[in-house]
Every structure is written in structure tokens, then in C-alpha cells.
Design a protein around this nucleic acid. Structure first.
Length: 337
DNA sequence: CGTGTCACG
DNA sequence: ACGTACGTGACACGT
């Protein structure tokens, strides 16, 4: 349509048509139509059409395969079908999630998920006093961060300030860069740099931990999780700054993401052991990185709720940072959230 | 089979 | 000057 003089191209020279690029031309009515069409086709092809084809005739259920040696951080991955990317963010997507229901009338779906697990592990592994205090006092971590970074009273924190602080917190876990944060927040690199600088003043232990992780990777060639799972980083001393930067962000992210993976795996093993020993009939059916999903007998709910909550929370009993587990039940997976 | 896109944590 | 926030899997499409 010759909308732009200098259309954005992909790495291989084709016109970019991803959502972020199209939204720069949102004044053209075709943009919204294309994005809505894409969303519907994605949901239809990936879920609505595909999932019924994967029903096992022996039990009329869908079974995923969990892979334990794919993700380099120690997470599980899920394939054929991937049940770790069932939609939840849009209304049409949520309609798909509603289709995941209990196996009989005597059951409900129970979902239990770790609250802010990766940020809590950042607090634990860095032993940063202010971040530990924020979790120990039970405050909303993103609001608490916003209040301090923007230097306002906690009651004065706006939605916008909290959203920004949340993005910085996520960025920290990913091995932050001013460029990446700026892009996410739609602000300049300079502004993003100032935000990060304020953040590190607030949480100096986090900064020291991040630098230490990179240092350790340089010295040993790998980083490790709380349970000593290693991620080797052969590019950590690369002369190519882009390649090296990638490895440095991995050095920060892998111990955090990987320790969360260690922790939920321990919880799964312990929950399974207790369920067996106690003759529990309810079934642990899904793991989605920080969440466990159960096909639960209503008559067993009062027994299993505290078991699941405790075993997830205490999977690593030596932690100083408090661990919080949220839990709910419903007639389908969506309602259980 | 590679690329681009988009679904999730 | 370049090129970047972490980890995945599935689908459509072109080669």
C-alpha cells in the first residue's frame, strides 16, 4: 500500500508484518482486521482444529509428552500437543482454555501456582536486603519497587508506575539491557538506563549478584542452579559483543529460571509420593513451569489442598525468602485461575 | 527445512 | 556500527 517510505524488513530482507510493526500503522483500518484475522486463524489451527485430532480413543483424553532434556535451563517442555501454551490472555483464547475439564462429575480442576517465583529466587540467590524485606513484609513487589524507584509514597503509586516497575523486574530476571527495557516500555535508552540505575541503587545486592554470575561464568565456563544443575556458556568470552551479551544474559537468567524448575520438580516428586502413600485418587495432570494442575476428586479436596500447598512451598526448606502458592478450583482450567 | 509469526511461563 | 531482555512449540508458507 506504499504506506511507508522506509518499510521495516526482517533479517532476510522480507517486509516485517509482525504485530509490533503493523501497530505502527494502526490508523489504517486494515491493520486491526489483519491482526484479528491472524488471532482467529492461530487459535483455530493450533487448538480448535488440532486438539480433537489428538484424542486417544482408549480413554478419550489428550496426552502430552513432557521432555526433560530439551530446555537448556532445566525446564520441562511439552509437545504433541504442547499443553504449556494453552491460551489465556485474550477472550477468544480463554474460550479454548475452558474446554479443559475434569474427568468426571465427581471431580474439579485444581490449579496451584507459585507467586512471583523467579523474583523470589532472585531475592534468595542475591540475598539483597531490600528485596528480601519486600517479600517478607508481604507487599506487592511491583508496587513496592515502583514506590522506591520513583521515590513516592506507596499510596501514591500509579498504575503506570507499577507497570513500569513490573517490566524492570522482569527485565532483571532476563539479564536486563537498557535497549530491551526501553523497547518494552516505549522509552529512550537514556530513560531506561536511568530507571535501571535507580533500580540498582535500590537493590544493590541484585546488581552484585548479576555481576557475580557473569564473573563465575567467565571463570568456570558454566553457571548453576540451587540444585547444582549446570548451564555451560561457551560464548561467555566471545570477542563478538552481541554473542557475548547473549551469554551474559543467559548467565543471569539460567540460575533463576533453572532454580525455579528445580523447585517445582522437587514439589512434583513429593506430591506424587504422598498421593501414592495415602492412596489419593486425584491425579496430577499438568505442569506449566510455575503451576501444577490436578484432576481432583471433590471428596479429597480438603486433604489434598494443604498437601499441595505445603509441598510446593517447602520444596526447598532452606530458603530464607518466603514462598507463596496460590490455589483455586473450578469446573474447567480457566475457572481454576 | 528455514523463516516468520504467535501461543504460553 | 551492530544488535540485544529469558525459555519453549506449532502452524502456515515458500523453497
Amino acid at each position: 500500500m506504499k504506506i511507508s517510505d522506509k518499510p521495516k524488513k526482517t533479517k532476510t530482507g522480507q517486509y516485517s508484518t509482525n504485530e509490533e510493526t503493523l501497530l505502527k500503522y494502526s490508523e489504517h483500518e486494515i491493520v486491526g482486521k489483519i491482526l484479528e484475522f491472524r488471532q482467529i486463524m492461530k487459535l483455530k489451527s493450533t487448538y480448535v482444529d488440532a486438539l480433537p485430532e489428538l484424542i486417544n480413543p482408549r480413554d478419550n483424553r489428550i496426552h502430552t509428552t513432557y521432555m526433560q532434556a530439551v530446555a537448556s535451563t532445566g525446564r520441562l517442555s511439552s509437545q504433541n500437543p504442547n499443553l504449556q501454551n494453552i491460551p489465556i490472555r485474550t477472550e477468544r483464547g480463554r474460550a479454548v482454555r475452558k474446554a479443559f475439564i475434569p474427568s468426571s462429575d465427581s471431580r474439579v480442576i485444581l490449579a496451584a501456582d507459585y507467586s512471583q517465583i523467579e523474583l523470589r529466587l532472585m531475592a534468595e540467590m542475591s540475598q539483597d536486603p531490600a528485596m528480601l524485606e519486600a517479600f517478607e513484609s508481604g507487599e506487592d513487589i511491583h508496587s513496592a519497587t515502583a514506590a522506591k524507584v520513583f521515590d513516592v509514597d506507596p499510596s501514591e503509586v500509579t498504575r503506570n508506575m507499577r507497570d513500569k516497575a513490573k517490566m524492570v523486574n522482569f527485565g532483571i530476571i532476563y539479564g536486563i539491557s537498557a535497549f530491551g527495557l526501553g523497547q518494552r516500555l516505549g522509552i529512550s535508552r537514556t530513560e531506561a538506563s536511568e530507571l535501571i540505575e535507580n533500580y540498582f541503587k535500590l537493590y544493590p545486592g541484585v546488581k552484585a549478584y548479576m555481576d557475580g554470575s557473569i564473573e563465575l561464568a567467565r571463570k568456570n565456563g558454566y553457571v548453576e542452579t540451587l540444585l547444582k544443575r549446570r548451564r555451560y556458556l561457551s560464548d561467555i568470552n566471545s570477542r563478538n559483543a552481541t554473542v557475548r551479551g547473549f551469554a551474559e544474559r543467559n548467565a543471569i537468567n539460567a540460575p533463576i529460571q533453572g532454580s525455579a524448575a528445580d523447585m517445582i520438580k522437587v514439589a512434583m516428586i513429593k506430591v506424587d509420593a504422598i498421593f501414592r502413600k495415602e492412596g489419593i485418587k486425584s491425579d496430577m495432570i499438568l505442569q506449566v513451569h510455575d503451576e501444577l494442575v490436578f484432576d481432583a476428586e471433590k471428596s479429597e479436596l480438603e486433604i489434598i489442598r494443604p498437601i499441595i500447598e505445603r509441598e510446593m512451598r517447602e520444596a526447598m526448606p532452606e530458603l530464607k525468602v518466603p514462598i507463596k502458592v496460590d490455589m483455586d478450583t473450578g469446573a474447567n482450567w480457566l475457572e481454576a485461575h
